[in-house]
Each structure stands twice: as C-alpha cells, then as structure tokens.
C-alpha cells in the first residue's frame, strides 16, 4: 500500500494539464467567469481545483507559500512529491495558497517591480463557494461587466490602484475556478 501523498496526480499528465490550463487561461482572460477543472485528488483541505492548478503550474522553480489554513504535513508532502516546489515564507512566494483570512496580510506578497511587473505572486484562494456574487468587475477581459464572488473588496481596489504592479488571484472551490488579475476594477455590488 503506497503512502497517501504518492497518490492523487493526473492519470494522463500532458492531456489533463492541457485541459486544466485552458480552463485557467479562460479564467484569467475573463475575470469573474467560473470555469471547471479537475484531475488531481489532493489531501484535504486542498480542493480539487487548487490541487489541479498546482500540478498544472507549479514546479521546482516556483516557491510556494502555504498559509496556516493549508500548512499541513500531508499537503507539504503532496506538493514535495508531485510538484517539487519549495515551501517558502510569504514574501518570496511565486504561488501562495490558503483561505483569504489565512493569507492576510496580503500586503506582504510580491507585487513585482516597475521594470518586471510579471515577477509577482499569484494567490490561490480557497473559497467556500464561487456563487452568490458580491462584486461588480470591469476592465480588460470583460465586455461590459461581470459579477463575481470575492472574499472582500477593499484589498482588490488597492491592488488595482498599483497597476501595473500587483498580485493576481485565482479563486477555487471544489472543482470551480475563477480569477481576478490585477487589471480588473472592482466595486461592491
């Protein structure tokens, strides 16, 4: 009987990662639109969507910060085996993973430099659900406006105000995923 952390990866790595990335690409290109991704079966409390995102995007060159909500031995082992990504403090993370409350204060995450705004963190935020919109989104990727569920409003308005600097967020819940790049304008619904 193999150890649990050895399990839960893609059965068809190239193809499943391709489908997962396309959903992720659509999510980032159309902020607030919910996509479905699956394939990974990670240890709880990591959602299927978050686990699939990590398998699709993370590897040894992407340091990960685990917020207290998700900093368990099982998740550390799973990431170490399947992604090989180092676990680091928040300030040095390429990806940060956790619930919104556990990720606070979000001001510590890397927002890039004015020469290289792409060298910034991507937050993978675990949510209870992505339904019941509480925010109105406008900006690139949105024809008129999208409504979306966000964990709060103020932090994303501050993030947009720093554009082109800022972090980008991917929200996950079960097998659902949506994204909020730094370029999106957010107002409360």
């Amino acid at each position: 009987m193999p150890e649990d952390f050895l399990m839960g990866a893609f059965a068809q790595p190239a193809e499943e990662a391709a489908f997962a990335f396309r959903a992720c690409l659509e999510a980032m290109a159309r902020p607030g639109r919910v996509q479905t991704i699956s394939g990974a079966i990670p240890p709880a409390p990591l959602s299927v969507a978050s686990g699939t995102l990590l398998l699709t995007l993370a590897n040894a060159s992407t340091p990960i910060y685990l917020a207290p909500s998700h900093d368990t031995a099982a998740i550390r082992d799973w990431i170490a085996f399947h992604c090989g990504a180092p676990i680091v403090p928040a300030e040095r993370a390429t990806f940060a993973l956790g619930t919104w409350e556990a990720l606070h204060p979000v001001s510590r995450f890397d927002i890039g430099t004015s020469d290289y705004p792409d060298r910034s963190a991507t937050l993978i935020v675990e949510m209870d659900a992505l339904s019941e919109p509480n925010a109105r989104l406008t900006g690139p990727g949105i024809e008129t406006l999208h409504e979306a569920r966000l964990p709060e409003i103020a932090a994303f308005r501050e993030n947009r105000a720093r554009f082109p600097l800022g972090f980008d967020c991917i929200f996950t819940s079960d097998t659902s995923v949506s994204a909020l790049p730094r370029s999106t304008y957010v107002t409360a619904l």
């Binding site: 990335f21 980032m28 995007l57 993370a58 980008d168 730094r182």
Partner: peptide, 17 residues
C-alpha cells in the same frame, strides 16, 4: 509548458506588457 503557461497568465494580467 508550465513555464510558458505561467508567462501567458502574467501576460494576460498585464495586457501589453
């Protein structure tokens, strides 16, 4: 592909950069 995919996502987040 992972490296290229991460670059594409950052590109989408910062249009034109």
């Amino acid at each position: 592909k992972q490296m290229i995919r991460r670059a594409i996502l950052k590109g989408l987040a910062i249009p034109g950069y």
